[in-house]
Design a protein around this nucleic acid. Sequence first.
DNA 1: AATTGTAAGCGCTTACAATT
DNA 2: AATTGTAAGCGCTTACAATT
Lengths: 354, 354
Amino acid sequence: MSNPKVSIYDIAHAGNVSVATVSNVLNGKGRVSPATRERISALAQEMGYIPSLAAKTLGKNQTYTIGIITPDVSNEFFSNIVLEVETQLYEHGYTSYICNTGNDPLRENKYMQDLMQRNVDGLVLAGGTSDLGASSIPSSVPYVAIDRNSSNSSHFKGSCALVGNDVRSMTHDMTCFLAQHGCQRIAFLISSKGWVIAPENNRYGGYLDALNDCGMHLDKNLILWGPHAMSSRTEARRLVADSLSEDIEMDGIVAMGDRVALGAVEELRARDIAIGTDVKIIGMDNSPYARICRPSITTVDRGTKRMANEAVRVLLGLIEKKRISVLNVTVPYRIIERETTMGPIQNLPFNVDR
Amino acid sequence: MSNPKVSIYDIAHAGNVSVATVSNVLNGKGRVSPATRERISALAQEMGYIPSLAAKTLGKNQTYTIGIITPDVSNEFFSNIVLEVETQLYEHGYTSYICNTGNDPLRENKYMQDLMQRNVDGLVLAGGTSDLGASSIPSSVPYVAIDRNSSNSSHFKGSCALVGNDVRSMTHDMTCFLAQHGCQRIAFLISSKGWVIAPENNRYGGYLDALNDCGMHLDKNLILWGPHAMSSRTEARRLVADSLSEDIEMDGIVAMGDRVALGAVEELRARDIAIGTDVKIIGMDNSPYARICRPSITTVDRGTKRMANEAVRVLLGLIEKKRISVLNVTVPYRIIERETTMGPIQNLPFNVDR
DNA sequence: AATTGTAAGCGCTTACAATT
DNA sequence: AATTGTAAGCGCTTACAATT
């Protein structure tokens, strides 16, 4: 229907004006008489004009493109955030590259280079286990990191921001929640992928804090973390299985993620251990799995939508206003109580959702 | 560390050669002496050169960019495909825009325009309920549609391909599967979003075929489809609830998707109806939900990985070889039998995975 | 013949000059 | 003063010419 490729020169020629005028009309800028504006506008439409973003980029050095880097969109927690961020950015005129790194530093690096060549206006880092300080983000491009561990936010160069929960206090609260429900020997269950168990890790640190606050002492046998290389659910199940086979006693499990919690549930279920009574479990992320699973899994709503909102708001601020200060947005969370922490479970398979 | 912006002119100048030579070195093309090649290569590296894809695009009219359009990445079926496609394309040097339309024609259209401005080399359409023939894809850009209904593939202009299951035969087999398991009154349950119940719809058509083959007759009351506007799980649950409230009898449900099946399970469970015995259910997509749910849901593995493979292979073929023929790849599927079609369910909550 | 350089072109933006 | 036009520049590619 339209000629293969019509440029503003073609329009200028057909309309008997200069390219500057065409450009001004098309961008609603400059002083152009209403008549010309109208006429050229219609002409462009009629000629089937499609602007070339590449040329625009070369002219203005803006791409209206954002790179979203995430370890794993197949995880609902991240995919929710990413989807929300993408949608909102789109409404602000930005199109997103969504890059899945699978927590592989090599891929992360390759992607980063690619995005630099593509001249993205900004970056969103959703999750990722490595310390942010270690990342190699060029200081020229503003970015916001969501739910990312970062020990030394003071070192950051460039304009960036952090959005996330207070993870340390969250893990603390999860552990205390189990303690309040009568648990004495609470295990800390985490998928090994990329995480290091050290007090600098806020997740682990929060667990330690809670033990302290609740007058319990650390038993290293209850730290369930190992060098497996499988899905976090399978790995978690294996870790729980190994512990139980070694007769390590536990009456509570703080699981770093609902997939991890699900693995624990599956193993306990297979062993006919009364979940919610003999062993209580709390997961994290409020994924659909936690709701659908029987028994349904007590979990933490981390406010993903809010995170996405804040991330977009802050990023656009950084891009447009070129602020250089370090921002730090903390999003509230809340525990959702379900069957895995509710004592004797009545009438299991057929009861209604909570 | 590197100067804010170094171009091939800077390199040419610093290396005392022409830009053509630099370009040739950087792209491994043309005849350049090994010595120069080596020297300029190192120089570029050292100067921290980052090529500008925008300029490259303008020069060559290739972007190494693919647009992936999908209705809903929050659905595992699509997110699996999209993730796989993206990963594979990336390995072939292409970066992807992932566009979520939510089945909204307006958004789909806006995205399409955006992608055209961005000059994508190709398009992947993963899912989507509207008929492909109706879409407004410029004939200049090659594309492949995955799992998309298309009545008249003969009308296609441009270079394109279809990848998917034989959906009609799949729905047929699902229905027959229930019939073979003794079901007499089999309901067809589908989320209303975007689907029209007409024989042209292969899903519905396959159901009709099966009724015919199995010697049953169509009862319109057993077509569960309605103008709700909620998640497919909730909608399915509501549809089943409504039917049961109207005392419509059914002993089997063919659900178009595992989320839909899950909704049915939830409603039957709430009513203490024996799933697998009194009512058998088969879902579709082999999502994690179907496995995790109790009772676990019989479903269909549609070969998503294979679909992604084929889509990438075919698309790259279209892009590189500029073939104009219409390709049509059919991927095999297989039914996975689980508890919802297995008769009396023993020892439900604690039994092991199948 | 092998290697390297010149210059136009890709499709825009925008400072500034020129016209009305 | 309001409107419009000129021309350079953004960073590449590539046909072709020029040099060794």
